[in-house]
Design a protein around this nucleic acid. Structure first.
Lengths: 108, 108
DNA sequence: TATCTATATAGAAGATTCACTATATGAACA
DNA sequence: TGTTCATATAGTGAATCTTCTATATAGATA
């Protein structure tokens, strides 16, 4: 149904920040970017806030805030296990964005 | 090659604004959104700043500023004819973004 | 030449974003 | 029960963004 780019404004805004878009890239291939986790699988469950905090060098509250932005935009989902919150990329959302950019690039 | 999303940060930032992303959608199908032009073809040359200004309801300097953002991000190109500046969507740039989102959506 | 037209530039006010520190919450465990 | 660990919330200051008005520039035209 060829959705216009403006449909994805919330996601575009979430990705318009160097830390957040970098985090998305990391979450898309977590095994290459994070150490193994004990209480949750990197791929199946996602990556915990602490690991992302370490890798960005930002403070923990700042990372929590960025992750909420990404989640509200539908780009990631979260799962709470014990004390941890694991974040995982939402590939369906990325696919919808991809579709819109593809049809945009094919416009006559 | 499979470029990460962070590669497109400049474009994502340019599109992270409701007016700019709306303008992009309009420029992708100019004939559906703008009246015919006398001194430049809507499709071949692009759309002049004045038409975009009218359609957004923003002031002319604000639109000029938005168009410069889009151009610096590589999302549009401009052509000056007489007194007008015509802006046209850069579909090659959109295609590269589409490719990155597609491979992101296919990450394992 | 003088004027008109389309766009660009300058400058400033208000809103939003981004990051921090300090602190709270809530679950697990000694 | 009390402590520890991981994350959330509150609050704040600095930077950036968005928009405006006023004005400048440059090309076309009378």
């Amino acid at each position: 149904m060829n959705k216009p780019l403006v449909t994805h404004l919330a996601a575009l805004r979430a990705l318009a920040n160097p830390h957040r878009v970098q985090i998305m890239d990391w979450l898309l291939d977590p095994q290459s970017h994070f150490p193994p986790q004990r209480d949750g699988d990197l791929v199946l469950d996602g990556v915990c806030v602490g690991f992302i905090t370490d890798k960005t060098g930002l403070s923990q509250p700042t990372v929590t805030s960025h992750m909420k932005s990404l989640e509200q935009a539908g780009l990631v989902s979260s799962k709470k296990i014990k004390n941890w919150v694991f974040y995982k990329a939402n590939q369906a959302a990325l696919q919808q964005i991809a579709t819109s950019f593809t049809s945009a690039s094919e416009a006559l």
